[in-house]
Simulated assay, not measured.
Amino acid sequence: MKLKLPLIPTIVVALAVATMIALGIWQLQRKGEKEALIALYAANAGKPPITFPDMAPVRDAEMFRKSTLNCLEVVKWQSVSGRDTKGNAGFQYIADCKTGAEGPGALVAYGIADRPDIKPEWKGGMVNGTIITEPSRYGVIERMIGKIPVPRPMIVADSVSEGMRPVAQPDPKSVTNNHLSYALQWFFFAAAALVIYLLALRRKQAGG
């Protein structure tokens, strides 16, 4: 039986399928861009130290570079989940440091502890480490519908004082690249929508 395609519904479905295919192709393009970015990060890790960036956003050329900063004073501490250099989970303590009379200061991922409520003894000083951005405090929905602040630069300290464990050093390989799976999902949705539409038409026309 030859299917008769109703004009308006067919146009709507065709546009939806074309949109999903376009989104899949876009995700494939994003996959290539992310692979190039991860390669840049990996190259950055082997380059000489640079000056710690004063303000956000952190440029791609600065990510995963070694740097040094002078924390004049720890203004406050925050703790988030994290891992130490041996892969053990714990609470990562981040110091909000004063670096001058004015300015935004700097964030230092200083060490890992087993409790979220301790008061680290470190009061400040010179810090050697790796530049990344602060951990995200926002969920997927907030990032989609809200205007969130640009993540501040943060240095992950190479060493800590007694009583804490060193934070796991940032690894460019940990940067997620899920764009291929997203592309395949969009292509699957497009194929599924087309098949469902054709089956619905066949059933309707067979029923007369």
Rank of each mutant, 00 (worst) to 15 (best):
M126Q: 15
A206K: 15
L15P: 01
A89K: 07
I145C: 05
P120W: 01
L15T: 09
L184A: 10
R165S: 15
G32P: 08
P104Q: 04
A113D: 03
P172W: 09
G111V: 01
K34M: 15
E62D: 15
A157G: 10
M126S: 15
L201K: 05
G139S: 12
G46E: 09
H179T: 08
I145W: 05
G32L: 08
D54H: 11
F64Y: 07
A95V: 03
D96M: 03
L37T: 15
S136I: 05
Q169N: 12
E134H: 08
G111L: 00
P104E: 11
A113C: 08
E162R: 14
A36Q: 07
F91Q: 01
S81Q: 06
G90I: 08
I94N: 03
N70T: 04
P151D: 10
G105M: 12
K119C: 08
V17M: 03
S136M: 02
S67C: 09
M144V: 13
L198A: 05
A191K: 06
G24R: 12
S136W: 04
L28I: 14
A36Y: 02
Y138Q: 13
L199T: 05
R203A: 11
I21C: 13
A18P: 03
P166S: 07
Q27C: 10
A43W: 05
K66P: 05
G87N: 10
E162A: 15
A95Y: 06
E142V: 01
R65A: 00
D158L: 00
R59S: 15
A192H: 04
A183V: 14
L23E: 03
E62I: 02
D114R: 14
V167W: 05
I196F: 13
M20Q: 07
R165D: 14
I155H: 11
V160C: 05
M154H: 11
M164L: 09
Q205F: 05
D96W: 01
A191H: 06
L40V: 11
E62S: 11
T133F: 03
G129A: 02
F64M: 04
A109G: 12
G87V: 01
Y41T: 09
L23N: 07
R115F: 12
G139Q: 06
A42V: 08
I21K: 07
Q169E: 13
G146H: 14
A101H: 12
F187P: 13
G163I: 14
L180I: 12
S181M: 10
V17S: 08
W122A: 12
W122F: 14
